[in-house]
Computed example of a mutant assay.
Amino acid sequence: MLRAAVFTVGAVALAALAAGPALAQKQTVVIYTAIENEQITDYMKAANKTLPNLDVRMKRLSTGDISAVFMAEKDNMQADVIWGVAATNMIVFKNAGLLEAYAPRGLERAQPLFRDKADPPSWVGIDIYMSAFCFNTEIAKKHALPAPASWADLSKPVYKGHVVMPNPASSGTGYLSVASILQRMGEPDGWKYLDALNQNIAEYTKSGSKPCKDAAAGERAIGVSFEYVALEMKKKGAPVEMVLPKEGSGYEMEANALTKKGAKNPAARQFLDWAISDEAMGLYAKYFAAVGVAGFPVPEGLPKDISKVVYPNDFDWSAKNRDRILAEWQKRYAK
């Protein structure tokens, strides 16, 4: 029995030694992201197959929250990679000295709009998302609500208590909508409009996707959200229509970056190389009308040329004025 026991222990030890090199090949990379959970699941199936040597540790929060966590950790940085966080926030991170410039493999394929202007860039964009209204036609019939066609419509008294919108402090979707309105109308008129819109708001949500999901569930008539969620809810059978406001949808760009901590981690660069590969771009293009590399088909139900439906976003202005705008928004509308 003793000899058998010794053999068993020895066999286990030998097995562990044999497995050691394989285990050692796994390189840990810590990724902070604001990408929607169902998209992460889809993307990571491919990433795990293509990058079997990586042990990916993912932290997912809404844009405002993940950005606040990352900024708070600046003196004890945990993230190696920022993946799919708003370009506006990336500019804030860059200006705070938290990012390491890096040109991922294949960068030359990226469209000029989808990258930091510096060479090498501090961030690279992967897709564009735009503000959209989710309009529940059944709730509308119940309350005799007309279908909104514009931002101006949403401020009409008929919609009082029927609109839900993301909080711009926690949601990238919320901030892109507010920033776009202020850029398009100018700040004096923009804040007057937001004052009027606020009279109709039933709730400001933490998440950018929740307003549309609430509308789809029949909890609200109108959810100000973004186009991916509107299409997904409609595909799932919810009685919602997607409305792109006729003045122009606000838009934002999901982007990637290497952090100062990640600069010391080869696995971080490896992931960022994959994250702009054709494989990754093909996955992003399942959900968004415009991705960082041209030539991918547009999902059914989305405009073929988004330049005709969006209002141009000055990302530098949005980043520079973000804290001031959020402070003013909180003072006026925080509930």
Rank of each mutant, 00 (worst) to 15 (best):
A5S: 11
T8I: 15
T8N: 03
T8K: 12
V9R: 04
G10L: 09
L17W: 10
G20V: 04
P21T: 08
P21Q: 03
A22C: 08
Q27E: 13
Y32D: 15
T33R: 10
T33D: 07
T33W: 03
I35P: 00
I35E: 00
I40S: 02
R57P: 04
M58V: 13
R60G: 08
T63A: 15
V69D: 14
M71W: 07
N76K: 14
M77L: 11
A79N: 07
A79S: 03
V81W: 02
I82T: 05
W83D: 11
W83P: 10
A86F: 12
M90R: 12
M90L: 13
K94I: 02
G97H: 03
L99K: 01
P104I: 08
R105H: 12
E108M: 08
E108R: 07
A110G: 11
Q111I: 11
F114L: 02
P120F: 04
P121S: 02
S122W: 15
S122T: 13
W123L: 09
V124A: 05
G125F: 01
I126P: 01
I126T: 15
D127P: 04
Y129F: 14
Y129L: 11
M130I: 06
S131W: 07
C134W: 09
C134T: 14
F135H: 13
T137G: 07
A140T: 01
K141V: 11
L145P: 06
L145K: 00
P148L: 07
P148Y: 03
A152S: 11
L154C: 06
H162T: 12
P168K: 00
L176F: 15
M185I: 09
M185F: 10
E187I: 11
G190M: 02
W191V: 00
L194P: 08
D195T: 01
Q199N: 13
I201V: 08
A202I: 14
Y204E: 12
Y204G: 07
Y204R: 14
K206V: 13
S209V: 14
E219H: 15
R220W: 14
A221T: 04
V224Q: 08
S225N: 01
Y228V: 15
M233H: 05
K234D: 05
K235H: 15
G237D: 07
P239D: 03
M242Q: 08
M242S: 11
L244G: 05
G248W: 03
G248A: 09
Y251R: 04
E254W: 15
A255C: 12
N256W: 01
A257S: 08
A257P: 00
A263E: 11
N265G: 02
D273F: 05
D273M: 03
S277G: 01
D278A: 10
E279G: 02
A280H: 09
M281W: 10
G282Q: 04
A285P: 06
V293T: 06
G295C: 03
V298Q: 06
V298G: 07
S307C: 06
Y311G: 09
Y311I: 10
N313H: 13
F315I: 12
F315C: 06
A319Q: 00
K320Q: 10
N321T: 12
R322Y: 02
R322H: 10
R322C: 08
D323H: 08
I325R: 03
R332M: 05
Y333I: 09
Y333A: 14
